[in-house]
Nucleic acid binder design. Structure first.
Lengths: 144, 144
DNA sequence: TCGATAAAGATAACTATTATCATCATAAAA
DNA sequence: TTTTATGATGATAATAGTTATCTTTATCGA
């Protein structure tokens, strides 16, 4: 795997974000700085980086692939309402969970895990209280 | 949601399987019995059933959506080599894990979780020992 | 049985992703 | 430093998977 300006930029951009962008979201961001950057290049490099376990290709129920610049195993929550995916940091019982998962990895010989919780995020719950019984919002748009 | 012969058949077929088929895999199976069943109908019903939480739409890193007739939260392992997804039943430390996850669901207000482990399955590990350093097998074909 | 509504089947349209290929960049050797 | 081999890019075509559309058929309560 040779170096390339594009790959470095893609990785840097992904790492600078706390959200979990799709290939085309990253492409859109990078295009400001690199107008000739091709979408194919973004796809190619994200796959490559994930294969080399530099980044994480998320296991999510959505229709677009999402990537995470933080390759360390950690947890995600998908909101039923807005579809956003958020990192679960400082979740209650997080330490306990971690401890069990480490044991499970060791005994199964697996190298990684991805936990996806499903529910309604705080933000949407707030909205739901304010304006009850509105039309449901689209699922995939903002993949936080 | 009215009843329909097709929906019942799709659900029954999915429930009869321990693997996690894609829409077109289910369609292929059902077509023997129901030659006029359309692929669109299968997609439509799987989405519908998942939305009603009768079945589970899996959170997986693959390129095709997979479904699970068992809507109760349980764990999966994706094989790096063959791409198959297997249920993890009777995993070591399973009880412990379950206990922590129940607590987490309760305290976060989430309704479901999906844990995906990544590694090489027993079957592929066996093969790897027998025929070392062969070309890698295709990732997505059999989704177990 | 009739009427309103939901679902099916067939197919077109769309979106996300992957493959192709000519050109350009990188890195190591001469 | 040129040369050479290889890897990566950009542009675009092709593919696969999924969703939307539309007409016909099935379902279910009145």
């Amino acid at each position: 795997m040779n170096h390339s300006t594009q790959r470095d930029a893609i990785l840097a951009e992904l790492r600078s974000l706390t959200c979990h962008p799709t290939a085309d979201e990253l492409h859109a961001r990078l295009r400001n700085r690199m107008p000739r950057l091709s979408l194919g290049t973004v796809y190619r490099n994200l796959e490559l980086l994930a294969e080399h376990r530099v980044i994480l290709k998320l296991a999510t129920a959505g229709s677009q692939k999402r990537f995470d610049g933080n390759a360390d195993p950690h947890h995600h929550m998908r909101c039923d309402s807005c579809g956003r995916i958020r990192d679960m940091h400082g979740m209650p019982h997080d330490g306990e969970l971690e401890a069990v998962l480490v044991k499970i990895l060791a005994s199964t010989g697996c190298h990684a895990y991805q936990l996806e919780l499903a529910g309604v995020c705080d933000e949407c719950r707030g909205k739901a209280v304010q304006r009850t019984n509105r039309t449901k919002r689209g699922g995939e748009k903002n993949g936080g």
